[in-house]
């Protein structure tokens, strides 16, 4: 963990424990969301409906975790009036769990698309490129959660570039789907389903970027939303 971010060391050890618990829960929630993503891709790869059921079950757990962590953040705000790094931890956590929960929802949406495809025997041709997009997104999510766990801002900035790669892959998938629709108007309905799934995967990338921005805010106290990577680097070098 980055040494700039302190969780422990308060005069009140109970406060240390409360903050520590929140951090652990976020990591736990991140683990659940990552498993959801794995299962979704397994379903996509294997046409196996058991995976989809697992994704749904995990989503219910993720939703509960979001509410639980939010409640803990509210309690700390009310009882402890956190300031400085502690305040930023609570704000960043509250925002990040929302992003994690949405990643879970998007993964579930993709899983439902897979079920629909299985039920309607949608041609595998329609899925071309979707798995690759999913793998890239999964990798970004995995690395994002690592950055969150270790509070590494430099890696966060580096990882932000990956979003562009995901956006490019998404564009390629969309172009392929357009071609697929042009070939036969009967393909349109299937292709639109797949397009929504691709959109969900692309959105997962965006939520990962939000979490990375939250890490930078937490560690550096800099709000880097709606800021280009060059500008973020400049801001971070100024704050060094």
């Amino acid at each position: 963990m980055n040494e700039d971010v302190m969780v422990g060391g308060h005069i009140s050890r109970q406060y240390d424990e409360e903050l520590d618990e929140i951090r652990s829960r976020v990591l736990q929630m991140g683990g659940l969301v990552e498993t959801q993503m794995d299962k979704t891709l397994d379903a996509l790869r294997e046409d196996e409906s058991d995976h989809i059921v697992d994704v749904e079950k995990l989503d219910r757990k993720v939703n509960k975790m979001e509410m639980l962590i939010d409640e803990e953040c509210t309690q700390i705000l009310a009882k402890r009036q956190p300031a400085a790094g502690d305040l930023r931890l609570i704000i960043a956590t509250s925002k990040s769990v929302r992003d994690l929960e949405r990643i879970g929802d998007e993964a579930e949406r993709v899983a439902h698309m897979v079920r629909n495809a299985m039920d309607n025997q949608i041609s595998k041709k329609a899925f071309k490129g979707l798995l690759s997009l999913g793998e890239q997104t999964k990798e970004l999510l995995h690395k994002t959660l690592n950055v969150y766990a270790r509070m590494e801002t430099r890696k966060a900035v580096k990882l932000m570039r990956k979003d562009q790669e995901i956006d490019d892959e998404y564009s390629r998938v969309v172009l392929r789907l357009i071609e697929y629709m042009k070939k036969d108007p009967d393909n349109i309905s299937d292709a639109l389903d797949v397009m929504w799934a691709a959109r969900s995967l692309e959105r997962i990338g965006d939520h990962c970027i939000n979490i990375l921005e939250n890490v930078i805010y937490l560690v550096e106290g800099e709000d880097v939303r709606h800021t280009g990577i060059k500008e973020i680097k400049r801001q971070l070098s100024n704050s060094d």
Binding site: G9, H10, P82, A84
Partner: peptide, 10 residues
């Protein structure tokens, strides 16, 4: 300052 306002030194 950080340590004081976050309750790490009293």
């Amino acid at each position: 300052t950080e340590e004081y306002i976050t309750g790490r030194i009293g």
